[in-house]
């Protein structure tokens, strides 16, 4: 038996957890490759026009996996850390099922369907039972997987924090969902462009989940999407340490359309730019905009230094 994991959406958030879990229970798995133009095109053909780019990529990745495995792992996550997710994540298994109905695709269900704290563990147990694994083995695998993911996240956060302190390059905060910033088609060109301009990209998504959500409580009271909250919290925590903010949105992301407005209104004195990525143009024309954005930041920085020395 072989399980296919599409490299899209929540894979970028939980990949260590999932892969370690399947390793520990001894199930063979295959992860689809990095997103390229062909996968995006396949996904766009399958999806309706209005669907958001990450969900199109998801369909493209699933299509790549179709003949290469027995089960496809499409998680459904309705809640995360007691907050409601975007409805796309509620509908994902149904969406994949309907889209590939004539291919007789078999999905491995993994369903976090209410806000209770232990729901993730329950979902893992249910999936393990379906795969015919012993309970004790699932328990062990779950703990190992959880720890692996935690270590991975923690090291990433620590590394970034250390860089924030030590680096004296211009630091630019990239505010984007994990499935945008971690994707080769959406995120990587932006990060590379920022690096090429001689700046240090700081990824807002790399901040600790709980810490970010806690910080976001001061900014917004009724926002329900946990990952958006994490990003808002990241901006709140890092706003004094960075020089500029890039808001990356995959067109037409519903949650980002409102979060961006909140960020623009709350942090008025920070230089901010919105980059929208869609399936057709990708990130074309972005370099020029980023270049002028960085120029503005550097001019502002120089002016500030000038006034500081004049003051003395």
């Amino acid at each position: 038996m072989k399980i296919g994991i599409p490299r899209a959406l929540l894979y970028h958030k939980h990949h260590k957890f999932w892969t370690t879990f399947f390793d520990e229970i001894g199930v063979d798995y295959i992860v689809s490759p990095e997103t390229d133009k062909q996968i995006v095109a396949n996904g766009s053909n399958r999806a309706i026009d209005e669907a958001c780019l990450p969900s199109k990529i998801m369909l493209g990745q699933v299509e790549w996996l179709l003949d290469k495995c027995d089960y496809i792992f499409v998680p459904r996550q309705k809640y995360w850390l007691k907050y409601e997710m975007c409805t796309k994540f509620w509908a994902l298994p149904d969406l994949v099922n309907t889209t590939f109905r004539d291919k007789k695709v078999k999905l491995l269900y993994y369903d976090i369907y209410d806000r209770k704290v232990y729901r993730e563990r329950k979902a893992v147990y249910k999936m393990g039972k379906y795969l015919g694994v012993k309970r004790s083995q699932i328990k062990y695998a779950y703990i190992m997987a959880k720890q692996a993911q935690m270590n991975f996240d923690m090291l990433r956060t620590q590394k970034q924090n250390a860089m924030l302190e030590s680096s004296d390059k211009t630091k630019i905060l990239i505010v984007a969902h994990s499935y945008c910033v971690g994707d080769k088609y959406i995120g990587e060109p932006i990060i590379n462009a920022v690096k090429a301009l001689g700046c240090e990209p700081i990824i807002a998504d790399y901040i600790d989940e709980r810490e970010g959500i806690r910080a976001s409580l001061d900014v917004t009271t009724t926002m329900q999407w946990p990952y958006n909250r994490q990003l808002v919290g990241a901006v709140e925590l890092l706003k004094d340490k960075v020089d500029g903010i890039i808001l990356v949105t995959a067109f037409p992301c519903g949650t980002d359309s409102m979060m961006d407005e909140l960020l623009i209104r709350t942090y008025k004195d920070k230089p901010m730019i919105t980059l929208t990525v869609d399936a057709q143009s990708g990130t074309a024309g972005m370099e020029t905009r980023l270049e002028s954005f960085v120029d503005i930041i550097e001019l502002k920085k120089q002016a500030q230094q000038q006034s500081a020395t004049d003051g003395e």
Partner: peptide, 16 residues
Amino acid sequence: SFGCMPENDAMPILQR
């Protein structure tokens, strides 16, 4: 409405 999140997911199912 354009970009309505839940109705977007309902569209492919309605086609079926």
